[in-house]
């Protein structure tokens, strides 16, 4: 397909972090060779736990962090050659916490109009008209235009954030956990709104979330990240019917659907936890994996295609070394 609007090609990114008093700084490999793409008008999920690097990926896709290796391409152009304003015309973010994403000292109308101001688009009256139009589109009464964020509820604030993201009519929206700090009833309203806006405006969403049920509901395709790598890429349906990677399976088992009587499943993940400063050798998931083999602790698995799964990084599916389970 040729209509890829946003693409990351083998991007890497690491930070120096201090590990304690009087100890040397160490390298935290936040993103370790991630490739992903987003087509026009498509919703794609990016799933993973905290610390897996999904927010760093989002920052790179927004042009805010330049990858140390690899490149991000926007509409076929390398991101680092574009001006931040050109990027902003095409990609906009929506963040998780509607309390920290709105400046408490600004009026709602000024918050929504921020992108227009930066790009010097239209007169004050034009902007005002656009803001009111946008507020109407996201289901906010225009009487809030001169209110401040602290006078709005969490759901209303998230609507403001969405209005601000869409006022430039971008083609791509990066949604970083758009509903996870909202109540259940608010979450469903925001998800419905995002779906409507996508249909109306032909938006492409990259939906970053740890909630697999939300991803399944919204996205057609999903990337699963673990410790800075994409370990599985697959269609949503396939992801839920037959997850390939053991980590994806554990993740899926952890989704607690409201079905009484099924109890809480045992994910068998153990208490070892992922540390991106000191990643395990070989496959980084092997200390927590129930299907770990001898080869897993020494050799890094290569991505392979497995049936309907587009991409999976696990020795269970590699052809070459075929060792016996431990």
């Amino acid at each position: 397909m040729t209509d890829v609007v946003l693409e990351a090609r083998d991007v890497h990114c690491s930070f120096k972090v201090s590990t304690g008093f009087m100890r040397p700084k160490r390298l935290l490999r936040a993103v370790n060779g991630v490739s992903l793409n987003l087509r026009a008008g498509e919703s794609v999920g990016l799933v993973g736990e905290s610390g897996c690097g999904k927010t760093t990926v989002a920052m790179m896709l927004l042009g805010l962090i330049r990858p140390a290796r690899g490149e991000v391409r926007l509409d076929g152009l390398p991101m680092h050659e574009l001006d931040q304003r050109d990027i902003a015309r095409r990609v906009q973010p929506i963040f998780q916490d509607p309390y920290s994403s709105l400046n408490p000292r600004k009026r709602i109308a000024d918050i929504i109009a921020l992108p227009l101001r930066v790009h010097r688009m239209g007169s004050t009256d034009d902007r005002r008209k656009k803001v009111v139009e946008m507020m109407d589109m996201v289901g906010l009464s225009p009487r809030y235009a001169d209110s401040y964020p602290d006078q709005l509820s969490g759901g209303q604030r998230q609507r403001v954030a969405i209005a601000r993201a869409l006022i430039m009519r971008p083609r791509i929206v990066i949604c970083d956990e758009p509903t996870s700090s909202l109540d259940v009833s608010m979450q469903s309203q925001i998800l419905n709104l995002l779906l409507d806006l996508q249909r109306e405006l032909g938006l492409a969403y990259l939906l970053i979330s740890h909630n697999l049920a939300v991803v399944e509901h919204m996205a057609v395709r999903a990337y699963v990240m673990y410790l800075g790598r994409v370990v599985e890429e697959t269609d949503s349906e396939q992801l839920f019917r037959a997850p390939a990677h053991p980590y994806t399976r554990a993740l899926l088992a952890s989704v607690l659907t409201p079905e009484p009587g099924r109890g809480v499943p045992d994910t068998h993940l153990g208490v070892a936890y992922a540390n991106s400063i000191d990643p395990p050798s070989g496959c980084t998931f092997h200390p927590r994996c129930t299907k770990a083999m001898a080869v897993c602790s020494t050799i890094v698995p290569h991505p392979v295609t497995h049936g309907a799964t587009r991409h999976v990084e696990c020795h269970l599916y590699s052809e070459a070394p075929n060792p016996a389970p431990v």
Partner: peptide, 23 residues
């Protein structure tokens, strides 16, 4: 996040300091 949004929109450092941070 609101500072991140301003940066993503290409706001200058001066704008961010005077309009987003100082108030």
């Amino acid at each position: 996040d609101y500072v991140t949004v301003a940066r993503a929109n290409g706001c200058s450092s001066a704008y961010i300091i005077f309009r987003e941070i100082l108030p």
